[in-house]
Structures are given as C-alpha cells and as structure tokens.
Amino acid sequence: MSRRAGLITALIAVILVALWFLPAWAPYFYIFVAAEILILGLFAAGFNLVFGYTGMLSLGHAAFFGFGAYVTAMLLLHFDTPLAFALIASLAGGGLLALVIGFFCVRLTEVYFTMLTLAFGMMVFSVAQQWRSFTGGSDGITGFAVGSFGLGLDLTLGNPAVYYQLTLVIVTLAGLCLYLITISPFGLILRAMAENPERVAFTGIPVRRYRLYSFVISGAFSGLAGGLFAPFTRVASPETLHWSQSAEPVLMSILGGSATFLGPFIGSAIFVLLETWITSFTDRWMLFLGIVLALMVMYLRRGLLGTALDRLTKRG
C-alpha cells in the first residue's frame, strides 16, 4: 500500500514538473487549455468535498465560484488590488457566502438540499443580472487590468505563460490543503456521514454542523477558483453564477470519479480536452457530452479514475 502511495506521489510529481515546463514544449494554445483545466479542476475538487465526501449534491456551487470571480474582478477594476490579495478576498468571500447559504441548506438532505442550493444559487445569479449599477448586469465586469501580484513577487501577469505557472502553483497548494483536509479526522467523519449519517449522529457528532463546515470549506475553494478564473478569462459575467455553471463540477466529478480525491481534476482534464477536441470538428459537442455522461452514469458510476483504481486493487 505504501509502495503504491509512493508510486502515485512520484507520478503526480512528474506530472507537475511536466506541467510547469509546459510553455517550453507544448503549442502556445495548450497553456490556455491547461490553465482552464487546473482552475475548473480546483473548482470541481472543492465542490466534491460536499458531493463525493459528504454525500450531498449541490446545484448552487456556481454562486461561490462566480462570487469569487466578481470579487477579484471588482477589486482589480476599482482598486488595482495586487492579485494575491484579491485571491485571498475571493477565498474568504466564497467561504463567507457559503456560510450564509449553507446555514440554511444543511438543514435539509437529499433532493431537498439539492433544490435549496439551486434556489440560492439562482438568487445570487438574479441579483448579479439585475443590479446593473453595481455588477454590470448581463455584461458583467470587464476591462480590468491584471497588474502586480504583490507579496514582493515581480511577475508579468499579462503574459499568459506566467499567469499559467502562477495558476499551477496556487492550484497545487490549494489542492494539497484540500487533500490534507480529506485525510484528516475531520475528513474521515465527513466520509462516515456520507455513508451513514444516523450512525455518526449516534456517536455524538453534530452532523449538521459538520455538514456546514464542509460546505464552507468547499465554498471557499470554489471562490478561490473563481478568483483565478476572472483574470484568466478577463471577465466576470453572470453566466459564472448560473445553474448550468454549477452543473460543470458535477459532470467533472462524475467523469473522473467522485470517490477519489484526484477524480475531479481528471474529470476536468477529460471535459476540457474533449470539448476542445470535439468542437474543432463539430458543433454537436453537447450531444457527444450527453451520450458520454449517460454511459458513465449507467455503467461507470465510479468514474474513470475510480474504476481504474478498482481494477488495480482487485488485481493487486
């Protein structure tokens, strides 16, 4: 077991090194593809803390992701805030919004929880859409400059290669934090709750409060992902708050495997690469996605990574 863990760690290290030097060997366009995979992967991994680990399907996580995007975009636009501080604000903002929304949502379970997250998510979307003077309405926030990073680092963030490498570092650090959370005693309690909340409650653990903790941490990382996304796409728009944006991390977690930590990242890579690849020769990408998703839900519910790991464990 420890040998396999070592192997996986080594593999991840190799991938990370390869990703770091991506601008040196891959076509320029793949910098953008890789940055998108990393950011959406972080969003999906943050989301999966609630979905895969705590067993609750949220259809409102775009609220946190989009909120993070708006926070960073507005700080950059109005105050020329160094990016590091804008990202910290997005992380905190996502967590705070998740605290407010989660306070209500964790009272419910199963499909009622899902519907309530959908309602709150769409409330945030509606506000961004209609409060034109503050949020820019349907146009969102555009035309902000990405200036300095802060923290004494001299980075040319306008250069996509530099921004990509920064994204890689931040996503790696954030992913590591998330991973440590999932293997901590807290993370184990979450898993136990997903399997049998009654039994966990019986041991005296306040289930509802733990669900809220999980929701807030998940919202904070989603907010951070949104904060990285706005300077990458150069816009914070209401679409990042819409329920269809909430569906993306769900699809990614399913594709990669929601029971594994790296599943959402793998799912993000599959999703973005497939989309890039398929849309280059047909605009029927949604049809293809629908069929793949249907097959995954019916036959490979544990996702690609999850299924692969199952096979490996069976053999070993």
């Binding site: 199963e110 949604m286 049809l287 629908g290 069929i291 998703l293 249907a294 019916m298």
Partner: peptide, 28 residues
C-alpha cells in the same frame, strides 16, 4: 434503454442521467 437501470440508485443519479438526456434531446 436508460432509466430502468438506475431505479435502485440514489435519487441524485436520476438527476445526472436525465441531465445527460436533456443534452441529447436538445442537440438532436
């Protein structure tokens, strides 16, 4: 073809499968 396979699954699986169906029907 599709739905009868997931009746014993958690209800959230039905949301996912019918979401896939929505994509398929819309595009078709």
């Amino acid at each position: 073809v599709m739905l009868h396979r997931i009746y014993d699954r958690p209800i959230t699986d039905s949301l996912l499968l019918t979401f896939a169906l929505l994509l398929i029907i819309d595009e078709t």
